[in-house]
């Protein structure tokens, strides 16, 4: 009887532990329905904003509501999918003088820490790799919403923003453009579907 009880509580305990492990919800970024956008803007001659986006990427994130510091985000971007709505510029951006996509086809972000700042705001730090250069970057993340979708799934969405410096990524053209176009504002607007 005692033995039975012990086994029972052991099973219960194991169950709790595994429940704890599974407490993080896993989300895939919705790229099928494409409810996700990775866009950028950079100053043109210091006069106006030039905007564009990356059309092809994929990624996932884990949300641990009990312990947000366990949250994780991974995003992989196909650099050649850059789109600034001007074919000749895009060709130039993919070339050797900018992103050199033949040599460096992928850019990636892998989170290393998530700090909940309360009120739906968080600070996300991770390693960003672009053009073979890996740098730790910080994104200001704000939660947009979550809930059931009408088709039987569960979704949650965030917006993350950060500023990159072209000079960090060894682009010849970035060097030529100089300080006027060094800062690039990035914005990741993503919706994940819970798995």
């Amino acid at each position: 009887m005692i033995f039975k009880k012990t086994v029972f509580s052991l099973v219960l305990a194991l169950g709790l532990v595994s429940a704890n492990v599974q407490a993080a919800e896993h989300y895939q970024i919705d790229i099928k329905g494409m409810h996700a956008f990775i866009s950028f803007k950079v100053k043109h001659l210091g006069i106006s904003w030039l905007e564009g986006r990356f059309n092809r990427f994929k990624g996932s994130f884990d949300v641990d509501k009990a312990n947000p510091s366990n949250n994780k985000v991974t995003v992989n971007i196909e650099v050649a999918s850059i789109d600034s709505n001007h074919a000749e510029r895009d060709k130039h951006l993919r070339g050797k003088r900018f992103f050199d996509v033949k040599k460096f086809p992928k850019a990636s972000f892998v989170s290393t820490s998530w700090k909940d700042l309360g009120d739906g705001q968080s600070e996300l730090v991770g390693n960003f790799t672009l053009r073979g250069v890996t740098k730790a970057i910080t994104l200001a993340v704000s939660k947009v919403g979550e809930g059931k979708d009408p088709w039987g799934g569960y979704r949650s969405g965030y917006v993350g923003t950060t500023t990159l410096n072209l000079s960090d990524y060894k682009m010849k053209e970035g060097h030529i453009l100089g300080a006027a176009a060094d800062e690039v504002q990035m914005r990741l607007s993503i919706e994940g579907i819970r798995q």
Binding site: N85, H86, A87, E88, D90, K91
Partner: peptide
């Protein structure tokens, strides 16, 4: 075709 790829 280079120049006109995005409809310009």
């Amino acid at each position: 075709l280079i120049t006109t790829a995005d409809g310009q």
